[in-house]
Design a protein around this nucleic acid. Structure first.
Lengths: 226, 226
DNA sequence: CCCAATTTGTTCGTATGTATC
DNA sequence: AGATACATACGAACAAATTGG
């Protein structure tokens, strides 16, 4: 940081660091591992190789943050409490600002679950797809913090959905209402009606939220492993 | 994780790990450094020492997450967009649920800036104190995610306030209004009026927010260093 | 107060794997 | 195909810190 290195820039080679800091190879390598674990550098072997500054990926940041919650009793309803306020905020920003390319992608995802699921497995896949719908929206935000936070919550919810049958009871009524919400949301986003987008998402979150409260409270420990 | 180790539990000693995985000392130590950097273990020398599982501290989690935003163009107004919706949610939860002990602490903090600042330095200290007021509230939440997110934003804002004269122009009107908001908020929290607490905080955030928008947009790079 | 045992921390020398020219 | 420049891994030794006798 002090030397203003940018992603892609090469750190001094190990022998150079040994020379510069007057330390042994092992010590230098342990130090580099500390940066490695934080996702700040990546190393490559061979000529032209070395250790390079690397932008911390969203995936890495999510994994590191998940470690923190490994020791906390975070529940599904805790997550929904945050989603309930952040996602309406998100779509209010996005109304009228989405590219045709993204709009099309959103419609594609929506189409992937336009028919009710018939099996538990199909049901699970559809739920993952709805989460992808929200994820794609989150990725469009100009606010990196908002984008990350929603993405983080969606990753947790997706992991839980995949590794555990979270949404087992098939509920056709809920499915129909969710589909209706998202269809109307797309319209509001396209026409640029920020207020409507916010209201629709808010209502959507308020129906999805209480459903989760019914689930037993449980810690996320078993899902957070890398 | 696989062996269900809890915070405080000891990992095998280095010689044991060397034996168990059939690897050299340096390799084992680099692996332990990876866990160390994530805040998952701490090592102590001497008899009775070793490497111990450790709960990831909030401070560490914040620092690791800050690394992610080091490469993003996060602005003050991005942060306020999130605060604006999360902090009202926080105080709505907290209304009527705070211990007399905490209420007293909150009043103490409030009292520490009950007189208008006369110097820039005093002004800065008062702003840090107002952030502490919010931090103390965040710490009371039963929702670990909500608690962490607000705490994270407050840490960033505090760092900026301390290391840079963010709030330089002394604005007595704003000071008076902020004090009024917080006083009324304390009353609402004490009487357990959840709706009022939410409304007051919302209004508070909406006056503080636009003030920040006036600040030039800038990245947080220079502040995020550990 | 000092000594001895235990455990992590550090060093050095060497060898191996890997990618590039 | 071979030389070169890297990171990666190994092994033996020594240093430093902490604890208990």
């Amino acid at each position: 940081m002090r030397e203003g290195l940018q992603p892609g820039d090469r750190l001094p080679s190990e022998p150079e660091l040994i020379e510069r800091f007057g330390m042994a190879k092992g010590t230098i390598r342990e130090a580099l591992r500390l940066l490695d674990a934080q996702g700040l550098v990546k190393s490559r072997t061979g000529p032209g190789g070395g250790t390079f500054v690397h932008e911390v990926s969203q995936q890495r940041a999510e994994a590191l943050l998940a470690n923190y919650f490994y020791f906390k009793d975070l529940t599904i309803s805790d997550i929904y409490q945050i989603r309930r306020v952040l996602e309406p905020e998100l779509v209010a920003d996005l109304a009228g600002a989405l590219s045709p390319r993204v709009m099309e992608e959103l419609r594609d995802i929506l189409a992937s679950y336009s028919d009710p699921a018939t099996t538990d497995e199909e049901e699970r896949d559809q739920h993952v797809a709805t989460l992808q719908f929200h994820k794609l929206l989150a990725d469009q935000s100009a606010n990196p913090l908002l984008s990350f936070l929603i993405g983080f919550m969606l990753t947790i919810l997706t992991d839980i959905t995949v590794y555990r049958k979270l949404y087992t009871p098939i509920n056709r009524d809920l499915w129909a209402r969710g589909l209706d919400y998202q269809t109307r949301l797309l319209d509001a986003l396209e026409t640029g009606d920020s207020g409507a987008a916010r209201a629709i998402m808010k209502a959507h979150m308020q129906t999805a939220g209480p459903l989760m409260e019914g689930q037993e409270a449980f810690s996320l420990k078993r899902f957070l492993s890398h």
